[in-house]
Design a binder for these strands. Structure first.
Lengths: 153, 153
DNA sequence: TAGCGAGATGTTACAACATATCATTTATGT
DNA sequence: ACATAAATGATATGTTGTAACATCTCGCTA
């Protein structure tokens, strides 16, 4: 039993505990995301799915499964990149601060960083004052990574 | 000469001053964005363009014009919503702090708020430490507005 | 002022991301 | 075992954005 199986197992128990089902297909898709630990598009997942499982999966199913996994807080959709990643909470029990996603707008690489909690709290206060609510304390931040910056110059 | 004409005129001078041309089509598109002061998708602009000017415009042209206007810092692309807005700097000469965009993920309404400069600086430091660079100090923040929150409940 | 060249626009086709709709299959409780 | 609800399949289509190549227009220079 390797680490990924443990994670999937854990996710399944989580689902079961409140009456939802982590079916085979859903496990397969989640597993792909957990294994790569990178952000993947729905169509990346379709391709990977065939490679890993020797079986096709319709786009519709992948989107439905991703919706389900999002609702279960097992994956996170990065709207800036139209990509999906396994939620870091699956593998990590304790918060070490508030994770934020840095997304390189050139090469689409995604990096998760930790930001001072007080900084996020300040931001949150400004947001609430404006009559909005943060969807998630995990911001998607549009950046350029140093590699791309160097290449462009 | 109304306010919008003044803005367009000003933008045109700006372009001229460094050798780029704010052509008729570009003015028409910019004008649509300045008038509505809301975030519009490229295809919203195509529809509006026909209504306002009684003349069709191809998607390709709109995208090219938006790229141009972005490069001129006359419009800003909201990647979270795949929409475009007139840059607030067109109408406002002085910075009143650092503007941030709050985007309601349900109804897509966009609100520009001001956040404490020190908060942004702290965030920026975390980003740089991770080897990334903010594309713009203007973050796009994925939120839910109170109206949608109330409706959902 | 004719015509050259760069930049702007038109046209067509298509790629990538996502959803609507309705049919079929599978799982679960009684 | 059967009724029901949930999950998945299949097909079509919507939305956002780009590639590639043709044509036009403006401003410069000979």
């Amino acid at each position: 039993m390797n680490n990924i199986d443990t994670i999937i197992e854990h996710a399944e128990q989580n689902c079961k505990s409140h009456g939802s089902r982590l079916t085979t297909k859903r496990k397969q898709v989640l597993s792909l995301l957990v294994q790569t630990s990178k952000a993947l598009s729905a169509y990346d997942l379709i391709d990977l799915f065939v490679k890993e499982n020797g079986e096709k999966i319709p786009a519709m199913s992948v989107y439905r499964i991703l919706d389900f996994l999002e609702a279960e807080h097992l994956v996170h959709k990065l709207k800036l990149a139209n990509k999906y990643i396994a939620c870091s909470h699956i593998t990590c029990k304790h918060d070490h601060g508030v994770p934020q996603f840095l997304i390189c707008s050139v090469c689409n690489v995604v990096k998760e960083i930790t930001v001072n909690k007080s900084t996020i709290n300040e931001l949150n206060q400004s947001v609430e004052k404006a009559g909005f609510k943060l969807v998630s304390p995990q911001l998607e931040i549009n950046c350029i990574c140093n590699d791309c910056l160097a290449t462009a110059a």
